[in-house]
Measured scan of single mutants.
Amino acid sequence: HNLTITQGKLFFHYNPKLCLSEIHKMEEVSGTKGRQERNDIALKTNGDQASCENELLKFSYIRTSFDKILLRWEPYWPPDFRDLLGFMLFYKEAPYQNVTEFDGQDACGSNSWTVVDIDPPLRSNDPKSQNHPGWLMRGLKPWTQYAIFVKTLVTFSDERRTYGAKSDIIYVQTDATNPSVPLDPISVSNSSSQIILKWKPPSDPNGNITHYLVFWERQAEDSELFELDYCLKGLKLPSRTWSPPFESEDSQKHNQSEYEDSAGECCSCPKTDSQILKELEESSFRKTFEDYLHNVVFVPRKTSSGTGAEDPRPSRKRRSLGDVGNVTVAVPTVAAFPNTSSTSVPTSPEEHRPFEKVVNKESLVISGLRHFTGYRIELQACNQDTPEERCSVAAYVSARTMPEAKADDIVGPVTHEIFENNVVHLMWQEPKEPNGLIVLYEVSYRRYGDEELHLCVSRKHFALERGCRLRGLSPGNYSVRIRATSLAGNGSWTEPTYFYVTDYLDVPSNIA
């Protein structure tokens, strides 16, 4: 807008934040220059609390790290170098490059900038070799853009010569660093050979998330399962459950009422301010606690030095998902009996873990797994792929695949051998790939016309006998059925096997 004052003059007093240069501009645009008398524009009460600059400061050096910015700028000295009290560095987070010096300023003089007072450097006698002032900004957020400017702080001049310097606002972004852990990993099994893994992005990506790394490792069953005799009275049979499938998407929606109208769909109840505040506090606490764990609990591995020492970490090797089922080394339970199943799973520490690289999504279907087997899954978020990966501390989750139908069934015939004193040795093959492992066998036998009897055969007993022995049988026709019990439950009964026990007292003698 054009402003013209045809008559009258300007009068400025007691404006401590208004620089004289701005008042002189007002004289020019209003056409009143030359009308004012000496005392109409006070030299001592206008701009006496402001830094009124008329020179431009330029930054000469900028260096960044993930949490620091090192700045240096060209030296500046007023005509009387004693008038320079120091520099004021202003900075704040700036997602967009549209910041002005006066953003967030209120009537009390406060604003949204963080201000650092910096002492002037030592003055050199040689004007050509003056030290460049600077400042190291610490405690910054990774991968965050900051708006920065600097200006001088000078003393009051009796001659009211307006001098000083100020830089333009520059924008500097800190470097990326390792992201925080992925949030809320959930693993479920939808079949006997697959596990579905879902997660949420890290709360602090500290860069642009480029991919996720998912490692999985087959877990050995508890050692007590191999040692305890679950045929003993009072000892509860062990059981394991597989990871249940995901709930429906509708039930997972946030901010939804727990109660549904019987007449149909209901609208979600909005969260109160107290609920939102509580969630923010919980989120802040979780982030602080995660940072504490990362800094205190997890110790970084030592990389190899120039002395030739090897990095103890196993090298990563990509495998196809079809090879995942046989990740671990199978060892027989008892070496003397080769027909026992290889369900003991000690994992070799030198073995390469299978892994998958996930790009542009937060889910993965891990296939080719062994049925009813526990897996430990390790999830890392990465925001750099080359020249070397920059990934987060791992988040861990466990899951067990679903049982395989008929995996616990005894394959092959049940054979028998009759000894003296009416002892019958029953023999059968253990299931080759049971659900988890076989903890015991149930032997059901009966003599024709009598009630059915049951015998429990422990895992250890089966390994020693290759089956079991029935003792003290009365003469007669017998039928026997056997079924295995694994961590997933009972298998199917075998087809009945028949044998006849004679009275050993009636056996004919070869003595003449």
Results as ranks from 00 to 15, higher is better:
S248H: 02
I418K: 13
K361W: 12
N208Y: 08
L225K: 09
T494F: 02
L470T: 02
V424N: 00
K302F: 14
Y478C: 00
S348L: 09
D222P: 07
D261S: 08
E227P: 10
A336D: 14
P434V: 08
R301I: 04
N326Q: 05
I418E: 09
Y230F: 09
T303P: 13
E495H: 04
S284E: 04
T288C: 11
Y504T: 15
N477E: 03
R376F: 09
K271G: 06
S509I: 15
P434I: 09
E279A: 08
T288K: 10
L225Y: 14
V296R: 10
E258S: 10
E224Q: 05
S262F: 10
W216I: 09
H294G: 06
A335L: 11
F298M: 14
N360A: 14
F337G: 12
P431R: 01
V414C: 03
I410R: 02
D250E: 12
S398W: 06
S268F: 05
N208L: 09
K432L: 08
E389N: 12
V324C: 01
I482C: 03
E350V: 13
D408A: 02
E247Y: 13
I377S: 05
D229S: 13
V501F: 12
G374T: 10
E362D: 12
T373M: 09
W493T: 05
E249C: 03
N490T: 08
L228A: 02
A488D: 05
D311G: 03
K278F: 10
C468N: 01
H425I: 13
R400F: 10
L321M: 11
D222G: 04
F246N: 15
L453S: 09
P238M: 12
C456R: 02
Q256V: 08
A381K: 03
G374L: 11
T307V: 03
Q275G: 13
P312Y: 15
Q380C: 04
V334C: 04
P270M: 15
Q384R: 15
E290I: 15
L455T: 10
C391T: 10
S304T: 10
S305A: 12
E260F: 12
A220T: 15
P205D: 00
E430L: 08
D503E: 13
F226R: 11
S243T: 09
L470R: 01
H371Q: 12
L369F: 09
C269H: 02
N422T: 06
V424C: 13
A463K: 05
D204P: 02
R447G: 15
T494M: 01
H371G: 14
T386H: 05
F462K: 10
S239K: 05
K278S: 13
S474R: 09
M427C: 02
P338Y: 11
C231Q: 01
D229L: 12
D323S: 05
N422Y: 08
L232T: 13
R390G: 08
N255P: 12
S344L: 07
V397G: 13
S320T: 11
N435P: 01
D229K: 12
A399K: 12
P314S: 14
Q380N: 14
P387T: 13
L470V: 11
P431S: 03
R286F: 09
N206D: 02
F372S: 10
E356Y: 09
C468G: 03
W242Y: 06
E217R: 01
E420S: 03
R313L: 04
D323N: 07
T340F: 11
F246Q: 12
E265Q: 11
I438C: 06
C231K: 01
R313V: 12
C391Y: 15
A395S: 13
K432N: 07
F462G: 03
G476A: 02
E389C: 09
G368D: 04
N206P: 02
L225E: 05
D506K: 12
E451K: 03
R301M: 03
V443D: 01
S363I: 04
S268C: 02
H294V: 12
T307S: 11
T485D: 12
R316G: 02
I377T: 03
D385K: 13
C456Y: 01
F246L: 13
N421G: 06
D250G: 06
P346T: 15
S479M: 03
Y445S: 05
P205E: 03
S243I: 11
R313T: 11
R400L: 04
C266P: 11
S305W: 06
S283M: 05
N477H: 04
R353L: 05
V331D: 04
Y478Q: 03
G374C: 14
C456M: 02
R481A: 10
V501S: 03
C269A: 06
G207C: 01
N208C: 12
S474Q: 10
C269K: 04
V296Y: 07
V439R: 07
R481K: 14
R318P: 12
S458C: 12
R390A: 02
F289C: 03
K271T: 14
T303D: 13
Y230M: 05
S398L: 04
V331R: 10
T401P: 09
S486W: 00
F226D: 14
N510A: 10
E442A: 02
F462T: 04
V324T: 07
V329T: 05
E260M: 06
R376T: 08
W493P: 01
A399I: 13
Y396I: 04
R390Y: 07
D250T: 15
S458M: 12
E465P: 02
V414A: 11
G308D: 09
D385M: 04
C468R: 02
E217S: 12
E249K: 14
L440F: 15
E495V: 07
A399V: 09
L455V: 10
G368C: 06
K287L: 07
A399T: 08
F462L: 05
E430S: 14
L225Q: 12
Y375D: 00
F226S: 04
S509C: 01
N255W: 14
R319L: 10
V296K: 09
N255I: 14
Y448D: 01
E465R: 09
A336L: 12
K357W: 03
I366M: 08
L277T: 02
Q252V: 12
P332Q: 10
S305I: 11
K233N: 06
V324N: 14
E465I: 09
N477W: 08
P238V: 04
E351F: 11
G322N: 13
S262K: 04
S341D: 07
N421T: 06
G467Y: 01
D506R: 07
N383D: 03
K432P: 12
K287R: 06
S479C: 04
D385H: 14
A407G: 02
G234F: 15
K361A: 13
A405S: 07
D385Q: 05
L379V: 08
S304F: 13
S474C: 15
T502N: 10
K236G: 15
V424E: 03
K317Y: 09
T347K: 09
K271M: 15
H211T: 05
A463N: 09
E388V: 09
P338G: 10
I377Y: 10
G322T: 08
Y375V: 06
G234I: 15
S268N: 14
G234K: 11
P205C: 04
L453V: 06
F289N: 09
R390F: 06
P387G: 15
T241C: 04
T333N: 11
C456G: 01
S243H: 10
P349Q: 05
S474N: 14
P270R: 06
F355K: 12
N206S: 04
P349S: 12
Q256N: 06
R483Q: 14
L277F: 13
F246S: 11
E281K: 09
E495L: 05
P434R: 05
S479W: 09
G207H: 01
S283G: 09
H461N: 05
I418G: 09
R318H: 08
G476E: 01
H461S: 10
S305Q: 12
L321G: 06
L470G: 01
L277M: 11
N477K: 10
Q275A: 10
S223R: 10
P244I: 12
L237E: 12
E217G: 13
D311M: 15
T497W: 07
D261A: 14
D311N: 13
V345S: 11
S315T: 14
M427T: 15
D291T: 04
S274M: 14
F462N: 01
V414I: 12
K432G: 03
H416M: 08
P332H: 10
Q252P: 06
D385P: 08
D229T: 14
V345C: 05
R446P: 00
A330R: 15
V365P: 12
F246I: 07
P332E: 14
C267K: 09
S344F: 07
Q380P: 01
L455C: 12
K432V: 05
H371F: 11
S223T: 09
P244G: 11
T288P: 07
R370S: 14
D311H: 12
S342V: 14
N383G: 05
N477D: 11
S305Y: 07
S262L: 11
V296T: 08
N360F: 08
Y441Q: 01
G322L: 11
H254L: 12
R319P: 04
E310R: 03
P413M: 13
D408G: 02
S203N: 07
E351Q: 04
V297E: 05
W242C: 02
D506F: 12
H425R: 05
G476F: 00
E404W: 11
I276R: 06
S243Y: 04
I209Q: 13
L453P: 03
G322E: 04
